[in-house]
Design a binder for these strands. Structure first.
Lengths: 294, 294
DNA sequence: TCATTTAGCTGACTTTAGTCAGGTAAATTT
DNA sequence: AAATTTACCTGACTAAAGTCAGCTAAATGA
């Protein structure tokens, strides 16, 4: 009845209105949009003038003048880049921070209004996540992290909740040997990775080691809204690389075919071979191994 | 880990890039965005100059000049409005239609590219629908329609598919007396309504009558992505109003508590009372009635 | 070391967007 | 019938955005 293309276009039209309203609200601070955009880029931590020019797609002359304007307003300061004195970095003054905070307020207000206008906000938020993460997938980074950091704990807690729900029983991280595990996923024994979009954690994986040549993959998880973007693959690639670097030659893992049917298929495709049970943990019913060095 | 507000803002940032890219692609036709927007508004059937001014939020002077420009390019013609000669209407010339088609191509290309960039396009499209329909909910109209029109058939087929799936059996529209039903849902016996966003059908309801004072509500359905917007309520309101107008005093309906649990709750809240079985159709297991005139 | 490249600044533009005070003709109100 | 309102146009602006050539200073490369 309606083509896929027209569904996309209907979405574009509908969201263009929302985006336009946000930009218009920025005008209410009495500063042209160009200056406001630059101020916000700096406020969001974009110090390098060349980076600002690139992301905002501005001419050197135009950006130069906008920076001069913001400097004249006392909102920013620019300094030569310490490493390369041809380049410049821009930072907010305290007046600039105050002004930036007001733009942040405007953005927050718009977001709050959107949520308030619709009941069933949770459904909207889930849809927004799916799109935001898909659109921004090239900006998602795999970073190494401490398994006890807030972001790591968030991911592992989410993992436990999801496994509990899928297996319809209580999966208790503590019972699953969390403190021991945390230690085993820290260098030099093991390693832990997160998938991040800016400051938002979207997935994790850990390699637990005990000093031997065999490591164990634990806590591979991605946020439901971020699935299908290849994050699990990227997390595993990072983990395998780090495992090699730590001197491991083999990795193994356990999983449950009922609770995580996608997982088993993925492991098989990624070169893992099914092996016999290697622990007496009651949850898993499938066991895999992979040789990571020749 | 991430607040609702920041989820909305992350979505805004991600989609702003997409929207920006679309607008930029419009510039590739060598015409300023202002003119392009006016041309597209006219191409999409917005004839009335006052309407264009209102939807694009343009000053009278500015729009006047943009129209003069497009006229000068030979893309549009303007004529006094036949009903009110102060007003004007704008229509595309054949050159204008060609040019408009090129803009349409650009929009289609952008949409295609978005879909091509992501595997799992169906998941994206579903998310887009949820947001587009929520954002545009004030533009959704309830219109009376012929039950044999394409849009009506689309809705009723979707209804049948969904009921089949929910009840895990074959729900056959033909077996469910479709030809008879169609006749009964046409004036003067009965009536049929659609919920539409522009040309896209989002839901339907029919009142089947036989000339007596009691009508039957049939085929109440809304597109899954459009649920939670109150369309069922609006459709029912329109249907009840029309039933009254047709001289009916009572409406009744049947439903299935397993397949459509939301439905039963909605009817009760909308003033319907459960009654005894009034037909021998095997699917339904709940029956409701409502008095619509005093 | 000297030519070349890179990053950014400045001056001198043009184009696009937006505003505002008149004006005309048609429609509406009084 | 006169006064008022409405819809649009025109001229005369201003402001914002964008372009481009030429410049300096720092870094890089032959």
């Amino acid at each position: 009845m309606i083509s896929d293309i027209n569904r996309v276009r209907q979405f574009n039209r509908a969201t263009a209105v929302e985006i336009g309203a946000l930009e218009e609200s920025f005008l209410s601070r009495g500063r042209p949009l160009g200056s406001a955009r630059v101020l916000n880029a700096i406020g969001h931590g974009m110090q390098n003038v060349a980076d600002i020019r690139k992301t905002l797609k501005l001419d050197t002359g135009l950006l130069s003048r906008l920076l001069r304007g913001l400097e004249g307003e006392g909102l920013i300061e620019t300094h030569p880049h310490p490493a390369d004195k041809r380049g410049r970095i821009a930072v907010l003054t305290s007046a600039g921070q105050t002004e930036f905070a007001l733009y942040e307020d405007l953005s927050d207000q718009r977001a709050t209004q959107i949520l308030a206008r619709h009941k069933n906000a949770q459904r909207l938020l889930d849809a927004m996540d799916i799109l935001a993460l898909a659109f921004a997938k090239d900006s998602i980074e795999i970073i190494e992290a401490d398994p006890t950091s807030d972001a790591s704990v968030y991911c592992m807690t989410s993992y436990a909740q999801e496994v509990s729900q899928r297996m319809k029983l209580e999966f208790d991280l503590a019972k699953s040997g969390a403190p021991d595990l945390d230690a085993g996923m820290k260098r030099p024994k093991g390693v832990f990775f997160l998938a991040m979009l800016e400051t938002r954690p979207l997935g994790c994986v850990g390699i637990k080691g005990d000093g031997s040549s065999t490591g164990e993959v634990k806590r591979l998880w991605t946020l439901p809204a971020a699935r299908g973007l290849g994050l699990a693959k990227n997390l595993m690639a990072a983990a395998e690389g780090a495992a090699l670097e730590l001197g491991m030659t083999h990795l193994r893992l356990d999983t449950n075919r009922a609770a995580l049917p996608e997982a088993a298929a993925m492991y098989q495709k990624a070169g893992w071979t099914e092996i016999d049970r290697f622990n007496d943990n009651p949850y898993p019913d499938m066991f895999f191994e992979k040789q990571i060095s020749l």
